[in-house]
Design a protein around this nucleic acid. Structure first.
Lengths: 123, 123
DNA sequence: TGAACATTTTTACATCTGTTCATATGTTAT
DNA sequence: ATAACATATGAACAGATGTAAAAATGTTCA
């Protein structure tokens, strides 16, 4: 949730774009705001240590809510809440076996993103 | 900021780890909490649409605060705030030319992470 | 030096987010 | 059907976060 302005409020007040030509060129090449927004939403999901810990745990093995609660020392409820967010973002999937539901990473994309991030952090 | 508990509060209450063996194995292989925390912090930086828009603008060209303010239709102050966060996370760097400061993406790591994310979003 | 400009910083505030607690849903086995 | 268990959901609260507004810092040039 970012801007909401009467269009060229920018120029009028104190937003002085120093390089008009560059600004226009960059604006032309920007991806649709919708994509950028979705992208931010995706990273937002990765941007929480509980969820990251869940994802890394699932890196090793499929796990049920109880397992994750044990691993993270969190309540099953808290885990379930975060799993819902991860499910909605299509970062994890699940399969049911009796009353137990096993969660796992959704695809290799997730692994790649995590690895890229870790590389940057390790520098 | 996640856990802070008298160690095995987990087992005592209602955290029933269904698969003890799996839990132990996963716990052994988890990266240090410190890394996971830093990783979450990194993604948190990507997880805001204003910052994503800044990064994508910088994808095209180095830009000064005024340019970015024009492109995003935000105040220079707001832009500067977000740039500070991006600087601290080492996602952008800058060079000064007179009174103007030009910002640019810090390295190709950043581009890669953005691209990976976009791929996932485009599915 | 002092005026003009580019950027940064501080404070304040409204919104968003994660966890807890209580309750509900769904599954299995008796 | 009922008890026991695994997971999910809803409401509420505390802490984190982004933006606006105002003031400060730093740089150039006359």
């Amino acid at each position: 949730m970012t801007n909401a302005q009467p269009d060229n409020a920018a120029r009028e007040t104190d937003y002085l774009a120093v390089h008009e030509d560059v600004v226009k060129r960059v604006l032309d090449r920007q991806p649709a705001d919708e994509y950028l927004y979705d992208l931010a939403e995706l990273f937002k999901v990765f941007g929480d240590s509980t969820r990251i810990r869940i994802l890394y745990a699932l890196f090793e093995s499929e796990l049920c809510v109880g397992d994750l609660a044990g691993i993270l020392a969190l309540s099953p409820s808290a885990v379930s809440h975060q799993l819902k967010i991860l499910k909605d973002a299509k970062l994890v999937r699940f399969r049911r076996e009796g009353k137990i539901i096993f969660y796992s990473l959704d695809d290799d994309h997730v692994r790649t993103i995590l690895s890229m991030g870790m590389e940057h952090v390790e520098e």
